[in-house]
């Protein structure tokens, strides 16, 4: 029981990262019917932006203009880092759309997937070229405190990460359901051809979709940095591709589904690692996913939809 609970908590944290990234994939796939293969690397860029922003803020704070208790100061920096990095990463996402996807909107969808893949490689290599191969360690913004609870240990970091992720997902959900722009996105997802004719500005919606996803990816990157403070240029690859699979598992363009599938992937991985040798994690996790997809071809919440690559 303790074992179960403990891993459940770990899985919640691990799944938060997948869920946040998967949302970005799922929105692009849902609204524009495209694979954004650069998204994993956008996550990486978000983490790096978070690293630089928080380091900068820490340096400013060290100058001592504002006198605040350390804990409050660090929390403030974390919040500011989240906001600034999410904002900045929005532009990274929009740049990906503008460079790699918009020029190819009339082209076969697979070609756009290739440009996405290539932009991802550019982001990785660019990072490597700019900042070198050494890993960066994310500054400590929360002093770890561990609570014991019925034999289960919970850190304040884990609680924060899960809460912030859930909050962001809720915010996205409200945005998509309640605002005009969210409605336009859903309309586009419903009919890619007719809706633009109704006066919905397709370019703006596309930018918005990529931007929102990238903001969430930046949040995931920072939260990841808080939990595992080691960043390297290739951190986004495996994470991104797995989150991509989670997004599909959730169902085409389903925000709720992508979030849940992200958590599910987290659960599967944590429990596989807890029970089997950790090297078997990918093997078993992906086998389970393959099985799920075999039984439920359209994911959890996706409606049967037969899309073909437009050739």
């Amino acid at each position: 029981m303790t074992f179960l609970l403990q891993n459940l908590i770990n899985a919640l944290q691990w799944g938060s990262f997948y869920a946040l990234i998967a949302l970005g994939y799922s929105m692009v796939y849902g609204v524009l019917m495209l694979f954004n293969f650069a998204h994993g690397d956008v996550f990486m860029v978000g983490a790096y932006i978070g690293f630089f922003v928080s380091s900068g803020l820490l340096a400013v704070a060290a100058l001592g203009f504002v006198a605040l208790p350390t804990g409050v100061m660090l929390a403030l920096i974390l919040v500011l880092t989240l906001i600034i990095a999410m904002f900045l990463n929005t532009f990274v996402g929009m740049a990906v759309e503008r460079i790699g996807y918009r020029p190819l909107r009339a082209a076969p969808r697979a070609s756009a997937a290739i440009t996405g893949l290539m932009i991802g490689i550019i982001l990785e290599t660019g990072n490597l070229a700019l900042f070198g191969a050494q890993r960066r360690s994310f500054p400590t913004l929360i002093e770890t405190a561990t609570f014991q609870f019925a034999g289960v240990s919970v850190t304040n970091k884990k609680i924060m990460i899960v809460l912030v992720s859930l909050l962001l997902m809720l915010a996205l959900h409200i945005f998509v359901r309640r605002t005009k722009w969210g409605m336009a996105m859903r309309a586009m997802a419903f009919d890619y051809v007719v809706v633009p004719l109704m006066g919905v500005p397709i370019n703006l919606i596309a930018l918005l979709t990529f931007g929102l996803g990238s903001a969430l990816a930046a949040a995931a990157g920072i939260l990841y940095g808080v939990a595992y403070p080691v960043l390297d240029p290739y951190m986004g690859i495996l994470f991104g591709w797995k989150a991509f699979v989670a997004a599909i598992l959730g169902g085409r363009g389903s925000v709720l589904g992508a979030g849940l599938a992200g958590f599910l992937l987290g659960f599967i991985e944590i429990f596989v690692a807890a029970i089997f040798p950790s090297t078997m994690r990918d093997l078993i996790a992906f086998s389970i996913i393959l099985l799920i997809l075999t039984v439920r071809p359209h994911g959890f919440f996706g409606e049967p939809y037969s899309a073909r690559l437009r050739l």
Binding site: D282, L283, L290
Partner: peptide, 9 residues
């Protein structure tokens, strides 16, 4: 894609 990861793993 899942298959590729499975084979590698």
């Amino acid at each position: 894609l899942a298959f590729m990861f499975i084979v590698k793993s």
